[in-house]
Every structure is written in C-alpha cells, then in structure tokens.
Amino acid sequence: MQTSIKNRDRAHIRQTGINPNHWYVVAQSREVKQDPISVTLWHQPIVLFRDSQGQIHALEDRCPHRQVKLSHGQVVNDWIECAYHGWRLDTEGNCAEVPYLADNQKLPSCKIRRYPVQELDGFIWLFLGEDNPDSIAPLGLPEWEHLNYIATVSIINCNAHYSYLIENLMDMYHGHLHHNWQAWTDAKLESIDEDDSRVDAHYQAQSYYRIDKIWSISQLFFPALRRLHPEPLEVSYVYPHWVSTLGQDFKICCLFCPISETQTRAYLIHFTSLNAFWRLHKLPVGFRRFVKDSLYGSAQKLLDGLVRQDVVMIEEEQQSFLQHPERNNYELNRALVSVQRLIRKQAELGNTEFSC
C-alpha cells in the first residue's frame, strides 16, 4: 500500500518535540571524567560532573549569578565552581559559597535545576521531565557487561530532526545504500505490532554472517568467508530508543539524545554474540573478560561506514524539507507510518509538541 505523507503532516512530524518523561542517553560514561562537560537535551543545556566518589550529577548549565556556563568551571570539594567569579553550587543546584561574600551579606538563595541522572551499562542516562523518574525504567543494555557479547560503539552526530534517524533505522529496505557494509540483505517486512510506547517491525532477511566457529570473527574483515543464510530481522522503536536483532548472532541498539528540531546525537551500539561457543563459557571469568575487552570495537570500521553513509542521506532529507516543505513524500514501508504515529502520541503525552 502506497501512503502519501501530506504537507501538514510532514511539517508536523519534523517539528515535533520529545516526551521528556523518559530516560535519554546524554553521554558515555568514559566521556565524563574529572572536568565538567556540557551536553544539550532538547534545547536544555546541562552540565555533567563527578564528585570525589565518582558519582554523576547533572545541573542546568548556567551560573545563577551572571548566567554563564558552569561547564567552563571545575569541581572543588564536590561542588561545581563557576569559572567567572568562583561561585560554587552544590549537587542540588543551591548556591553554596561565594568567595568574596562580606560578613554583613547573606548567601544568595538562588537555585538552578537539578536533573535525575544515573550511570548504567556504560552510559549516562538523564530524565528531563517533571514526572516521577522512578515511574519508568531506562532501556538498559544487559549485554554491555555480559561476557558473551562483544561491543562496538559509533557516535552519530546528525544535523537533522530525530524522526529522520529513527525512520532510517526502522527502514530495512534502505540496505541498497550500504552494499557490503551491512550484515544482511534482501529484507522483507512481514508484520508490525504497535502500541503507545513501541513499534515492532518483523522482517525476514538474508544474513552474511554466522558466528558459530572460533574463526567467525574473521568474517568481519574477509568478505569471501561470508555465506548468505535466512535469519529473522527484528527492529523495534522502544520510545525513545531503538533495538534490532539479526538472528541469534547480532544485536544493535541506538540510544537517542535529541538536541533540537535540526540536530540529533545518538549512540549506535553493535553487539556480537559469543553464545554459540559453549567451550568458551567454561573458561575462567578473568580470561573471558580479557577476550571481551580485547575484541571491543572489532566492528568499528563496519559500523562507522554505515553511519557515515546514513548521515549523508538523513541530512539531505532535512535540508530538502527546510528548502521545500511543500513537497510530499510517498512512503511504501508501513513501519515508518507507525513510527510517525508513535512520535506524535508521545509528544502529546509529554505536552512538548512544537515546543522549543
């Protein structure tokens, strides 16, 4: 069935905000070290920093004194110190110390916003909304620490609305773009399930890889060793993130950090399963950890190549929309219609549609 995406709907979806009452990923754990760093989640500048115990904290990235960025400063005695005048704020966002406060002056009662934040599975997860953050759990990546999975991470910086990226990830027909970069070919959409929180698209595809021999990892580097075989290809928009599995061998996740209507940051994580190697599971945990750590990033060239090709197309889509919003899209993949429906529903739930 061919679906015409009307002008008003197209404009609607490309300007739609996020539902802030979810956990979003704003950084990798390894990105937040001793110095504060600045991140942005849907127009909100946020400063991340660690205290002396390594605990992550997140505040508005502004000093209430002169409104400059706190991320220019440093962490002193577990408080964040502004680089401009040395004002210090505690981890709750309260003004805690002013170095030149006179004896007859009171400490200012100003306060900035503190955001719920947690460190989980190698990433920093932040809750932007006003709802109870305990009411919903982060997506999580149980494979991150599991010894049977090898991880590779590619960072996506895309000058486009987040809907373009999620549509790209849900559309398995665009494999025509990637040729030998991807792990599968000849995808066919079989069915779709959807509700108010997720869209599951069920494809059947031909996989190039079978991770069942000790030398299987070499298939990543030597295309001649690859053999096509049928595998189920499952892709899911678990709002606001994305998860995909190809048979039993591969899992890929994309963790979203929408920045604005025309900018998106995301983390694409590729997991290769070692579950088929039952002898490996009997070896000492220390050795298995060594294998896992040594093979980290083994799919980097492949993953980065896919990302580069996708970003070019996604940014061209964004520019085309900005220059010619009157033009219609004609979509044959029913999964993308479901994705747009979910984006609208979640935006309405968060009361952020068309917000800045």
Rank of each mutant, 00 (worst) to 15 (best):
I211A: 12
T152H: 03
A160E: 01
A205K: 03
V243H: 03
T245V: 11
S135T: 11
L141A: 13
F221Y: 15
Q248H: 01
N157W: 06
L147N: 06
L120S: 09
W125I: 01
A201W: 05
Y237L: 15
L177R: 08
M170L: 15
Y162Q: 11
L128S: 06
N180K: 13
D171R: 04
Q248I: 08
S154E: 12
P116C: 12
H176G: 00
Q206E: 15
S207W: 03
H229V: 04
N180H: 12
A151T: 04
V235W: 08
C158D: 00
P240W: 06
A183E: 10
H241R: 00
S163Y: 00
D200Y: 06
C158L: 09
D195K: 12
L225K: 09
D134V: 06
H176C: 09
N157K: 06
H176S: 14
E167W: 08
I217P: 01
Q182K: 00
S236V: 12
N168H: 05
N157T: 12
I166Y: 07
I150V: 15
G129I: 06
P142A: 02
F123A: 07
D212Q: 14
H146C: 08
D249P: 03
P133Y: 02
I211L: 14
H179V: 14
G140R: 10
W125R: 02
L141R: 06
G129N: 02
L189Q: 07
W184T: 01
Q248Y: 06
V153L: 07
R227S: 13
Y164P: 03
A205I: 12
K251M: 04
Y149P: 04
S191W: 09
I217N: 11
L126S: 02
D200W: 00
Y208M: 05
F222R: 09
H178M: 11
Y149M: 08
F127L: 09
N180P: 09
C253S: 02
A183S: 14
E231V: 11
S163C: 12
L120D: 11
I136D: 08
P116V: 11
E119C: 02
L228W: 04
P230Y: 08
G140A: 10
I211R: 06
Y239L: 01
P230C: 04
S207K: 03
K251S: 07
L139C: 11
E234G: 03
K251I: 11
E143H: 07
S216T: 07
L141V: 01
Q204N: 09
G129K: 03
D121S: 15
N159V: 02
L120G: 09
N180D: 13
G175W: 13
H174D: 01
E167C: 08
K188R: 15
H161E: 00
Y173A: 02
F127C: 09
I155E: 12
S218I: 14
W181S: 05
Y208L: 11
F127W: 10
F222D: 14
Y115H: 06
E190T: 09
S236A: 14
L139H: 10
L165W: 05
C158T: 11
I214G: 04
